[in-house]
Design a protein around this nucleic acid. Sequence first.
DNA 1: CCGAAACTGAACCAATTGGTTTACATTATC
DNA 2: GATAATGTAAACCAATTGGTTCAGTTTCGG
Lengths: 205, 205
Amino acid sequence: MNAPAQIKKGRKFDQVIEGARTVFMREGYEGASVDEIARDAGVSKATLYSYFPDKQHLFLAVLQSECAQQAEVEFLMDAGDLSVEETLRVICTSLITFFLSTFGQDMFRVCVAEAQRFPELGRTFYDSGPKKWGRKIALYLDSPKARAVLEIEDTLLAADQLAQLCRADLMLKVLFGIEKDPPEAEIDRIASEAVKTFLARYRRR
Amino acid sequence: MNAPAQIKKGRKFDQVIEGARTVFMREGYEGASVDEIARDAGVSKATLYSYFPDKQHLFLAVLQSECAQQAEVEFLMDAGDLSVEETLRVICTSLITFFLSTFGQDMFRVCVAEAQRFPELGRTFYDSGPKKWGRKIALYLDSPKARAVLEIEDTLLAADQLAQLCRADLMLKVLFGIEKDPPEAEIDRIASEAVKTFLARYRRR
DNA sequence: CCGAAACTGAACCAATTGGTTTACATTATC
DNA sequence: GATAATGTAAACCAATTGGTTCAGTTTCGG
């Protein structure tokens, strides 16, 4: 359907992307050297440069692929006959778990770092992450089942508030290395508190 | 009181720090070259290296100074005879304004980017920013005036929830370049919604 | 107005950067 | 088993990097 933009050819393509992913996530764009990427990917520099015209395109290819993967993240919602409150708890728990995951943290870190240098990257990340989840949550909040229990004027904002509540306490602590791997109990607590606050505001009276 | 750690000597010290600040904030650590910093500071490289032993120490000096400045940020609270609700609104408005300010965004961006490479930086930033404000807000929430109106078990968590609610919608949009300079009306709206949600949960019944 | 401290500009260094090329090896596929 | 696509390793490139040195100016306190 789309012209592959004269990128990608041979069989070691995935190796290259994978190696680049590793190094870029660890070192950032400027911190990562092409030699190191090639070494880590177990591939010669010539091969690498036969796939991508330069470092920028390689970087963007990696980030693009990661954003696509990020867009696929599913937080099981609406699964069966859960109550609205239970559903919200499930949503929050999966959100928090993702925020604190290595993948989620790495993505966030390098996209924050490089959104200036690569303006389109910022938009891509935002669209495939926060925006997409916000939309999805808002969709649920607008569903009949939820509307029976909740009363919300601006569901998009409400969805974002819920997501932000999920970042309480833990998110920044992990991001700045204050805490490494929060116990599940702590995650459950934050999720529970997020739902409580959310329902206090939006539960139908 | 403290040994100045054989850093800092002469009259152009501030120029150097200022130039370094500019370039580091714009380019990040790896992206910033010492030559560019010296140029921007209007100072010879020799002078620069007479102040700091190497690039790392210069970077850390800048960030340390910025963190100190960050710690001084005051969101006027408890100012006079405002009601609790009014006070919360003032807190939120100043928080949001800071989050969206050039300084706040730059600090957040480079600290997120480099917290891996400079682990102590992450802690310093977190302590002088989020943690300090959280403590301060919690202090207010624990005050008699606030306690008369609010009922909170975990004031530190509540404070953090409030701060997170202030990041709804706008924070990530600005961080990733989707929106440049949100109008004051929008800021007020987010602040208002944050307070509403907060009070819904924690107002004494 | 002198002497010392601070500062400059430019040359210099070894190492590394992103990127190219060449001469040879490994794969597939038919 | 020939052929053409993919791959390799290493040498090579010019440019830039962080960092040093030094002979010469500027600045300023006493």
